[in-house]
Write a protein that binds this DNA or RNA. Structure first.
Lengths: 228, 228
DNA sequence: CGTCATATTGATGGGCATCAATATATGTGG
DNA sequence: CCACATATATTGATGCCCATCAATATGACG
């Protein structure tokens, strides 16, 4: 993977919009590419911050582990998105675990020292940071609401409806980006509950579910379910 | 309330640390003080952003209302803290409701136009924004974890242990900042469940609960409960 | 002192987790 | 290419946590 490739990847990130070309080049020079397999860790919670990360390919899930061992997924980060920006600037340690959800996954690690220096010097970067953090904040607010107020079924329905769908005339096919086990963790439910929900909906002819795809048959009813 | 008072209030905010005196004065000139009673709204969800807010006295709760009418409290904002910074910069509308939790509550509204202009000009403000947003993000991440992974009892125990306590030799007295009804909403449980939990713990001689205060008798057991 | 919000307590039920067993994919080496 | 091992997914039985509905008690405040 060439320097030019890295420059291109970085330049496409929302975080670095408006940055001068040589600034991006400087960041690229301070970046390292990690190739990961599903399950490999990017960072561990509590680890000292070395830099921030941008996903190039595959996906990364951010999660925490509760005292009793259960893990809660905070978010899944896809290609073209960054994470750990906030930790780098205001904390000394990463606040959550991060690991690849697919094979292969490619992650760019952007050196914290260069980034921090540039943050001081370039106003554009400050703008990008604010935009990026706001976006994260907004997503977390959504999650708080979902997890506390909505039922398991409503959360699943929302999730399915938010997924990019293919197909027409009332038969939208959505591809699950992760195995169902992991989807359940993201939704804050057990795999069993997820399975039962899909089965129940299939019996009511709202959806058709196979291993990795879900076909939405009855859009309207599903939208009702999404509202609890 | 004098201009000097407003300047002093603004200068003490984390968001404006490091700002030049005349910048703070300019912000103060663009600020208006609202005096509110418990239950009065500061902003409504979906309303166009006019400015950001700083709490001077009392408290404000930020919350959303689910399709079925239930409300989830995102956070309670106390004196010396700001809210709606993120909305102002990156969105056109407020993403949640805000209302006073106490009588009297005093809130400073800082004009969005002046703030935005200053954000462009003053690097210090960008720094403050990033710090502030990071702090919000971190709190929301904590909430996601708590709401999804922890039981009602664990959430309550955590909350009590995090509260500033007075008193010695194994008898820590904590003052509830809000009525129990509201505390329950914040914890994502019903008032009935809250009441039952406290009663059960009182029977086990872990705490003593009165209207607005809780005395923690058995610190260790409570910490165990806080871990589910 | 009466009125209203807040708080407690009880009875009941449902949603979802847990435990356990089986089925179906996925991948590996012979 | 198939048999085996492992991870993922389904399905059932059971139970608990917590919400809901309902009634009463208690405090706050004019």
């Amino acid at each position: 993977m060439s320097h030019a490739d890295i420059v291109e990847t970085l330049g496409a990130l929302a975080l670095f919009q408006g940055l001068a070309a040589d600034s991006v080049a400087a960041l690229a020079a301070a970046s390292r590419l990690h190739s990961l397999q599903r399950g490999e860790r990017v960072v561990h919670e509590g680890e000292p911050c070395r830099g921030l990360f941008a996903v190039r390919k595959g996906g990364v899930r951010l999660f925490r582990i509760a005292p009793d061992g259960k893990e809660q997924i905070l978010h899944r980060v896809g290609p073209g998105r960054t994470f750990a920006e906030a930790a780098l600037l205001t904390m000394s340690c990463y606040p959550a675990h991060a690991e690849a959800t697919e094979t292969p996954t490619e992650v760019l690690e952007i050196g914290g020292d260069v980034f921090l220096r540039m943050f001081e010097e370039d106003r554009r970067l400050a703008r990008g940071m604010v935009a990026s953090l706001s976006s994260w904040l907004h997503r977390m607010v959504e999650r708080v609401e979902e997890l506390s107020v909505l039922s398991a079924g409503a959360r699943l329905a929302r999730y399915l409806l938010d997924l990019p769908a293919a197909g027409e005339d009332g038969r939208a096919t959505v591809e699950l980006p992760v195995p169902k086990k992991e989807l359940a963790a993201y939704l804050g439910i057990t795999p069993e509950t997820l399975s039962r929900l899909l089965r129940k909906w299939q019996d009511r002819e709202l959806v058709e579910s196979t291993r990795r795809t879900v076909v939405i048959l009855d859009f309207d009813t599903l939208m009702t379910l999404a509202e609890d």
